[in-house]
Structures are given as structure tokens and as C-alpha cells.
Write a protein that binds this DNA or RNA. Sequence first.
DNA 1: CTCCCGATAT
DNA 2: ATATCAGGAG
Length: 209
Amino acid sequence: MTKNRHIQNIFRILKATYPDVKTALRHRNPLQLLIATILSAQCTDERVNEVTKKLFKQLKTAQDFVEISLAELEELIRPTGFFKNKAKSVKGCCKAIVENHGGKVPGTLEELVKLPGVGRKTANVVLGSAFGVPGVVVDTHVKRLSQRLELTDNTDPIKIEMDLMKIVPEELWSEFSLQLIFHGRKICKARKPECPLCPLNKVCPYPTQ
DNA sequence: CTCCCGATAT
DNA sequence: ATATCAGGAG
């Protein structure tokens, strides 16, 4: 089986299994998605959604996040873990957004990555789901599945991102990332992957236990 | 590489 | 007890 055939099979099966993927992080605008994504580090999206439901009811604009005290913000986001770092990042982002971007979240990878606490993963989530700009999101799931499916030999997320950008057509970057993320959560889990249930098990090199 | 954070699954 | 959860900074 050629490498191209391998990846085409994966696209076909993922599309059939997850025909209409969208981010699980609840949001109404780019600012909300940016903040939700920062909060999502090492935390389930379910918990992030619980926190942001209250958070976004109380705080609407970037200016609101600049004005709230650090201690208050820390308490509001505490259940997401890493709350001191995340509170600092959220406030820092909003400060930069107010001062340098007229209160609007910037829509390019270059500008997003300059924001404190925003790396390529977070930036590509915002680009893909808030601005409709293609981006490969390499989070813990995409990294693990790319390795199990042998789409990359690398362990560095940036190198994996580059590998996937070569293999995956640009118009599928965001969709493919989301499909791997959903599949990684439900089936191809880090701990105990459910290989017998997996629609990819016929084309996957990973041992099915 | 370590640290940040705490809940949950195994 | 330990690994893992939509990572990023120092």
C-alpha cells in the first residue's frame, strides 16, 4: 500500500465518521474562542465550557478582562487548572488586543503567536474556527494519532505540523485536525485505545492489542 | 527539561 | 500510585 493510498483511506474514513466537525469549545466570537482555547490546556473541553459559561456572562469585551483584578479572574477560571498562568495569559492577551489591535483579536498566525500564552496550537485553533483560515492544529491528540497512524516520524509538534501540511491538502487542514481530535477523545485514547471499535483499524499500523 | 494545577481514569 | 487532560513559558 502506498503512502498516498494510506492517507486517502484515512481521509475517507474520517469524513464518513465525522462528517461535520466543529470545535467543542463554546464561543460566540474570536475573543471568546481565544480565551476558551487558552483555558483548555491540560483540561477537558467540558470543564472549560462550564467555566466560560459564567465567565462570558460576566465579562464581554477585551477591556472587561483588562479591568478585572487578577485575583478575581483567577478565581473564576480556577477549575481549569494552571489558573495562575492562564489568568496572566488571558489578561496579557486582552491588554495587547486593546492596546495594539483596537480591541479585536488579530486574524493572522504571526500576530496571534505574539500574544502572551498563545502558541501555534492555540493560534491555529482560533484561525481555523473563528476566522476560517486553514491551519493544522497539533495538540496532544493530533500528535498521538499522527504517530500511531505513522503520518510522521517526528515528536516535535512544529515538525509534525510541517509534515501534516505537506501530506494534507490545505482546504482540509482545519477539518482534518478536528477529526483527529474528536477521534482521539472518543476512540484512539492515550490510555486505553478502543482499537476493536475503531473505523480506522483496518488501515492503522498501530497494534490492536 | 521543568513548572504550572487539580480532577478523573486506570 | 500514576498517567492524562484541546499547552506554553522560562
